[in-house]
Lab assay of single mutants.
Amino acid sequence: TTYKLIANGKTLKGETTTEAVDAETAERVFKEYAKKNGVDGEWTYDDATKTFTVTE
């Protein structure tokens, strides 16, 4: 399944996707990606669109 991340960070803005077996796995991947890019904010997830959003 393809999951999408929308990053609304102070230093990183944009979108990326990952293939994962479930939302929990995708969330781990995206949180690691955000951490590597210095983004720390509020996370939301929309199951209907398989989209995570992080906003600083």
Rank of each mutant, 00 (worst) to 15 (best):
L12N: 06
T16S: 10
E32M: 09
E27F: 15
T1F: 14
Y3S: 01
L5Y: 03
Y3N: 01
G38Q: 06
K4V: 10
T1N: 13
R28V: 08
N8T: 11
G41K: 01
R28T: 07
G9S: 13
E15Q: 11
G14L: 15
Y33D: 02
A34L: 09
D47H: 10
G41N: 02
A23M: 13
K35H: 10
V39R: 02
G14H: 14
E15N: 07
L12Y: 15
D46A: 04
A48R: 11
D22P: 01
V21W: 12
V39C: 11
R28H: 07
E15M: 12
K10T: 13
L12C: 14
F52D: 00
T1G: 08
D40F: 14
G41I: 02
A26F: 01
T17S: 10
E15H: 09
T53A: 05
E15S: 09
V54C: 06
A7E: 04
Y45W: 03
V39T: 04
T53I: 08
N8G: 05
V39W: 15
V21I: 13
K4I: 13
L12E: 05
K36G: 06
N37G: 05
N37P: 01
T44H: 12
A34G: 03
G14T: 14
V54S: 01
L5R: 00
E56K: 05
G9W: 07
A26M: 02
T25S: 13
E42M: 13
E24L: 12
T1C: 13
T53F: 10
G9L: 14
E24D: 10
E42F: 14
K50Y: 08
E42D: 12
K35C: 11
D46R: 03
V39M: 12
L12H: 14
D47T: 08
D40W: 14
F52K: 00
D47Q: 10
V29D: 05
A48Y: 09
E19V: 15
E15G: 07
A20M: 03
T11P: 05
W43E: 00
A34K: 01
K10C: 14
N8V: 14
K31F: 05
T1V: 11
K35F: 11
Y3L: 01
G9K: 04
A34I: 07
T18M: 12
N8C: 14
Y33H: 04
G9Y: 07
A26I: 02
E24R: 11
Y33W: 15
G9R: 04
T18E: 04
G41F: 03
T11R: 07
V39H: 05
G41W: 06
T18R: 05
F30V: 01
Y45V: 01
G9P: 04
T44A: 10
D22C: 05
V54R: 01
T2R: 11
K31D: 02
R28I: 09
E15P: 07
T49Q: 06
E19F: 15
A20G: 03
T16R: 10
R28A: 11
K13H: 11
K50G: 04
A20H: 03
T2K: 12
T16P: 04
T2Q: 10
V29N: 06
G9E: 03
T17C: 12
F52I: 01
K50Q: 09
T2L: 14
K50N: 07
K36Q: 13
A26K: 00
T25M: 11
E15T: 14
V54Y: 03
W43K: 00
A7S: 11
K35Q: 11
L5V: 03
A23L: 10
A34M: 10
E19L: 14
K50P: 00
V39S: 03
K13W: 12
K10S: 12
D40S: 13
F30R: 00
G38R: 06
T25C: 07
E15W: 14
Y45E: 00
D47A: 14
E24Y: 11
W43Q: 01
E24K: 12
A7H: 13
F52L: 01
E24Q: 13
T1Q: 12
E24C: 13
G38M: 06
G14M: 15
G9T: 15
